[in-house]
């Protein structure tokens, strides 16, 4: 009997990795490898995925993987691509797989260089909204109001004050051919977008929203359901930008932001007036996205 499956059955990630219980980033890697297949080379900087393959000599990945310093993911994938092209092996996928800190803060210069050179690579940012591997420090991708160890909440209320950095807009400004966002709650969507990205020549960028139960202070069993609530509360949006044309790939019915926030310990201190403020900002960001889709439709 053949089981009816919606995603490829081949596993290129083995069990026994060092990810925490209910880790969203491991799900992201599993789906990306299912889409990319065996003929793939990964480059991973310092991030959760730098430790998750395991302690030497173990690895949970069935594809070659290069560890790089924190800021060099973009440069290393450019180099791997150049070497493969020189060897005439142009059919091998080169994927950079970095966290949000290694993309939005530390690695942005090397990533910008890669996009500028229009190297034929895919850069994936798995977004867990803080530096989780080193112990939950804030990153550029941390949203307003978040508790982290460097934005502590106590009598001083020093929670995160600046909004989440808009990485897709930064990459869109580079004029690269394909940009997409995805989330681990929708594996079919990740696989569709990665497959599409790898079929396009040039620099591609993907942001995968990956819950982190440890850093978000929530029940690991909620990893999948929290992504659905993140989408419906507009905390994260799914869209593609193909040659400048926006396409919102999922338009869920709106649910209150408070429901999403209160499931996570990192937001539980937020006062109601701050939640209302953040909700208004997120709603207008979503409206902007719909407008951009409308305005850029003819270009597609």
């Amino acid at each position: 009997m053949m089981a009816k499956l919606t995603i490829p059955e081949e596993e290129l990630m083995s069990p026994g990795h060092m990810g925490c219980l209910g880790c969203g980033a491991t799900q992201a890697m599993r789906y990306v490898l299912k889409a990319a297949g065996r003929r793939t080379i990964l480059s991973i900087p310092a991030c959760c995925w730098a430790v998750m393959p395991g302690v030497w000599p173990n690895t949970c990945l069935q594809v070659p993987e290069l560890y790089t310093p924190f800021e060099t993911t973009g440069a290393s994938i450019s180099g791997i691509r150049a070497a493969l092209d020189a060897l005439g092996q142009e059919d091998i996928n080169v994927i950079g797989f970095a966290g949000d800190g290694g993309t939005a803060d530390i690695g942005i210069q090397a990533l910008s260089g890669t996009a500028d050179r229009q190297d034929n690579v895919l850069y994936i940012m798995y977004d867990n909204e803080a530096y989780m591997n080193t112990g939950i420090q804030r990153s550029g991708s941390t949203p307003i109001g978040t508790w982290t160890t460097t934005t502590p909440v106590g009598s001083t209320q020093e929670w995160e004050k600046s909004p989440k950095k808009n990485m897709t807009a930064i990459m869109a400004a580079h004029g690269i051919p394909y940009i997409a966002t995805a989330t681990t709650g929708y594996p079919e969507d990740i696989i569709k977008k990665v497959t599409k990205a790898l079929s396009i020549k040039g620099t591609k960028f993907m942001q995968i929203f990956s819950p982190c139960p440890t850093g978000w202070k929530m029940d690991p069993a909620l990893t999948v359901s929290i992504t659905k609530e993140a989408l419906s509360s507009r905390a994260f949006n799914l869209f593609e930008i193909e040659n400048g044309a926006y396409k919102v790939t999922m338009k869920p019915k709106k649910t209150p932001l408070k429901g999403y926030l209160m499931k996570q310990g990192r937001f539980r201190h937020m006062p109601d007036d701050l939640i209302a403020e953040v909700e208004a900002d997120l709603d207008s960001a979503y409206e902007n996205l719909l407008h951009l889709e409308e305005c850029t439709r003819k270009k597609a």
């Binding site: 069990p15 026994g16 990795h17 060092m18 393959p53 395991g54 030497w56 000599p57 173990n58 690895t59």
Partner: peptide, 16 residues
């Protein structure tokens, strides 16, 4: 330990 450590063993050896 080699100068450039290369991971070769499958992580299924680690019983998590």
């Amino acid at each position: 330990i080699p100068i450039t450590p290369i991971n070769t063993t499958n992580s299924t050896a680690v019983k998590t």
